[in-house]
């Protein structure tokens, strides 16, 4: 069983043999937070608390198993919103204490990466992963199921964050990613050439705040000049700038590491433009391309269960004293989950 509550999704799933998804229940709070234009941590925590017993019961029911049949329980213990992480973790620990089950603490990004294993039986570490979500933009060398090396990360906004902010200034509302993706399909991606930020030569780090600011400045300028703005063109051009950088950096990472395959993970991996462009770029160079179905890209319990399954096989268990770690580092912080 995998339990995830690091942001605004209360999600619990049951897997058989670490791969076969018996249930994958996701209770989303998007509607709750929409009115605030983003996730409000205190409200998210309150909703997690109310939702979690229902999600837990439904996950077992849909899987057609009893709690007795569950071998291990994995839970996201970081990174994420502290109060939100607390709910899944407090609940998971009490379930494990009550039912004498082994507990596995999972890093949220580890979960996103391992979501790729659900549908790709041939994929095994080591491999290269690109993690793109509301809170993270990472290029990661997956050296083992519980060993990661971060090759590059964002220095400012995560890609999903930049999408949300641009969507806000365009008046598209929250969450920004899907809205920009949709409207961009009707726009010209080369209408405006927004700044692409590649940082210093050879760097695999990302920076999206410059591109975001370029969009905001453009909108101000057009407004002051009294010119009407074509939101679809702006969205398409912004997306083009962001996707171009991500794809090029991912290909550069393949060059530098010598891996012949890329696994993509995280909520922004649902973005249709990014999926398509990454796939094409991989095909062009004959590299394998792995990406989970959209349902496993969003925050979900199945990915946590998949990660927990492999951690458990290697003996990486947590104790009932497991704490939450809102800023947990993927490369150096995993030991904290075993204290």
């Amino acid at each position: 069983m995998g339990i995830e509550s690091s942001c605004d999704e209360t999600a619990i799933a049951v897997l058989a043999d670490g791969r076969e998804v018996l249930s994958n229940v996701i209770s989303s709070q998007i509607e709750v937070h929409k009115v605030y234009g983003g996730v409000v941590p205190e409200i998210a925590s309150r909703h997690h608390l109310n939702n979690i017993p229902f999600v837990f019961e439904q996950a077992l029911e849909e899987a057609g198993v009893s709690l007795d049949e569950i071998d291990e329980i994995g839970v996201t213990a970081g990174p994420g919103l502290a109060g939100a992480l607390l709910m899944g973790t407090a609940f998971a620990k009490a379930v494990c204490a009550a039912a004498d089950k082994p507990l596995v603490g999972v890093h949220h990004i580890q979960g996103h990466i391992m979501a790729n294993l659900l549908e790709h039986p041939d994929l095994k570490p080591p491999f290269l992963a690109l993690v793109v979500s509301g809170g993270h933009t990472h290029l990661v060398e997956v050296q083992g199921y519980n060993t990661f090396r971060i090759l590059g990360a964002t220095r400012d906004d995560a890609v999903g964050e930049a999408y949300d902010k641009v969507a806000r200034v365009l008046g598209l509302g929250y969450p920004g990613g899907p809205k920009i993706d949709k409207i961009a399909k009707e726009g010209d991606p080369h209408a405006i050439e927004f700044k692409r930020v590649y940082l210093e030569q050879g760097s695999l780090d990302f920076s999206f705040s410059g591109t975001k600011t370029a969009v905001i400045n453009y909108l101000h300028k057009e407004e002051q000049g009294g010119r009407p703005v074509n939101a679809a063109d702006v969205a398409a051009s912004f997306q083009e700038a962001v996707v171009e950088v991500i794809v090029n950096k991912a290909m550069m990472a393949l060059d530098l590491t010598g891996y012949n395959g890329l696994a993509v993970a995280g909520g922004v991996a649902s973005n249709s433009c990014l999926r398509e462009r990454l796939q094409k770029a991989c095909e062009k160079r004959g590299a394998h391309f792995y990406i989970p179905s959209p349902i496993f890209c969003t925050d979900n319990g199945a990915m946590i269960a998949a990660a927990a399954y492999h951690k458990a096989r290697e003996g990486h268990f947590a104790t009932l004293h497991l704490d939450v770690w809102p800023g947990l580092n993927l490369e150096s912080g995993l030991d904290k989950l075993e204290q």
Partner: peptide, 19 residues
Amino acid sequence: SFTGIRIGMATAKAFAQVW
């Protein structure tokens, strides 16, 4: 404490649900 309330409540709910 909001957080404290929720830790106790989530813990109680889980024990009550399992038992």
